[in-house]
């Protein structure tokens, strides 16, 4: 049995997910909560946000994010990749900073514009 606090809405239901019984969810007040609990137990993912170096006098850092949620277990590995990145302006939000993380469909993309 795994326990989670539901984050779908502010109510914060305490969910119990039975990973030995087809991931049955109890403690949820709505169907969205059940779906969240099952997903958290089976395959937790997160959008990772951070910042990277930029060759700019005005803006030393550019904020980035993964364009889709990645496996929670890959977060630390993904962060290490950012250490070696240095962007050269102009940067536009949506620009790919690191493509296809670990061979997946996820990319790190810039989340702000830096002109110079």
């Amino acid at each position: 049995m795994k326990e989670y606090i539901c984050i779908v809405c502010p109510r914060g239901c305490h969910l119990a997910v039975d990973d030995e019984n087809d991931y049955a969810v109890t403690g949820n007040a709505c169907l969205r909560g059940a779906a969240y609990g099952r997903e958290e137990a089976m395959h937790p993912t997160r959008v990772v946000t951070s910042s990277v170096r930029v060759r700019s006098r005005k803006h030393p850092r550019c904020s980035v994010k993964t364009d889709i949620a990645i496996d929670k277990s890959d977060i630390a590995k993904a962060m290490l990749l950012l250490d070696d990145v240095e962007l050269i302006p102009p940067v536009r939000r949506g620009d790919i900073v690191i493509a296809s993380l670990f061979g997946s469909e996820a990319n790190f993309i810039a989340t702000r514009d830096i002109d110079e």
Binding site: V47, T49, S50, S51, S63, V64, K65, R93
Partner: peptide
């Protein structure tokens, strides 16, 4: 917003999850 580089902004207003800089932009 410019320093709030995490996501979670805009779910109500823009109907999607944005980072702070994206919401400001």
């Amino acid at each position: 917003l410019n320093q709030c580089i995490h996501n979670g902004f805009g779910l109500h207003y823009f109907g999607e999850e944005l980072t702070g800089p994206e919401y400001a932009a």
